[in-house]
């Protein structure tokens, strides 16, 4: 186990190195030039050359890369925004809890809905409830979450003079108010993500239910509930957990639109605005932090398999 974890952490290093090189290079391939925009539209410096020097953009590209990555590795310094000159880590730290909370609530909603409907569908295969569950899953899959979000915000404002949009309050300030604000976006995002969870849950459970040890359980005269919940579900959860791990970047990416519609001050908008302003250090550092998180989360998920299925050994 220990060796496995160490090996995985070591493997993460080349992964993150590749991510850092790619995002660094891609930013520089983006059309437009950040220095031109900052000087011609915003007068951050008297001349283009002066600003390039100020931002360090006049140095060779590999030096710029080493300076950025060196700051992170050696000093834990993720740099500062070209435009606001504020430390990136501060802003990220302020905003990340919002996105994380949204992601966790979304996962909670999608898993709760997807797993329950998936279990019912699998346990009652080809019954009316199975068909209803499958139709709901396809519906959830085919409705884009951003479209649903706009409808949820706009329709009640027209018909009931009410809309589920509030001004954000942090959980630490007022937990109840915070949950009220986060609930609707999490539901919207969660419902649309519950579709794939339900479908994976259903097929995995059907697969498990056909295995020998389940047949043995039936033959021992066990009731349906303990067979499904105690014996089958744990094994059937492995692909569901994998799916959640794979969907993690989607929660961060999708948060741009959800955060924008429900006016939540999360990482999504911070990242998106930095991208449109060609704020290289912000895009690079935020990307790297999120990549590191995804890598870490996938490691945790892999380790959780051992808990779900004791036959798995590392």
């Amino acid at each position: 186990m220990k060796r496995y974890v160490v090996r995985r952490v070591l493997l993460a290093v080349p992964t993150l190195f590749l991510v850092s090189v790619m995002v660094f290079a891609l930013m520089r391939f983006m059309p437009g030039d950040v220095a031109t925009r900052m000087v011609e539209g915003h007068a951050y410096a008297p001349t283009l050359a002066a600003l390039r020097h100020d931002l360090g953009l006049d140095r060779p590209v590999h030096i710029q890369y080493l300076d950025w990555i060196g700051g992170i590795v050696l000093r834990g310094d993720f740099g500062q925004s070209y435009w606001t000159r504020q430390p990136i880590l501060d802003e990220f730290g302020r905003r990340f809890p919002v996105t994380l909370e949204l992601a966790l609530l979304t996962i909670l909603v999608s898993v709760a809905l997807g797993v329950v409907i998936g279990i019912v569908s699998a346990a009652r295969q080809d019954s009316a409830s199975d068909y209803v569950g499958r139709v709901l899953a396809i519906l959830a899959l085919s409705v884009p979450y951003f479209g649903l979000a706009v409808l949820v915000v706009v329709l009640p404002s027209i018909y009931f003079k009410w809309t589920p949009v509030w001004t954000y309050v942090a959980f630490t300030v007022d937990p109840l108010e915070n949950l009220k604000i986060m609930l609707v976006p999490a539901l919207v995002f969660g419902v649309t993500r519950a579709g794939p969870v339900m479908r994976i849950m259903r097929s995995a459970l059907l697969d498990v239910l056909r295995q020998d040890y389940i047949r043995t359980a039936w033959s021992k005269g066990l009731a349906e509930r303990p067979i499904i919940l105690r014996h089958a579900l744990k094994n059937a959860m492995i692909p569901v957990i994998s799916l959640i791990g794979l969907q993690m970047p989607l929660y961060i990416g999708g948060s741009v639109i959800i955060e924008s519609i429900f006016r939540l001050p999360g990482v999504g908008l911070f990242f998106f605005e930095a991208l449109t302003r060609l704020d290289y250090p912000v895009v690079q550092s935020v990307n790297l932090i999120i990549a590191a998180m995804v890598v870490a989360l996938n490691l945790l998920i892999d380790l959780s398999y051992a808990f779900l299925d004791p036959r798995i050994r590392y």
């Binding site: 009640p156 404002s157 809309t163 949009v165 924008s260 519609i261 006016r263």
Partner: peptide, 12 residues
Amino acid sequence: PDAAARLAVLRA
């Protein structure tokens, strides 16, 4: 940030 949300909060 979102235009539809801005109009919705006015209506609401």
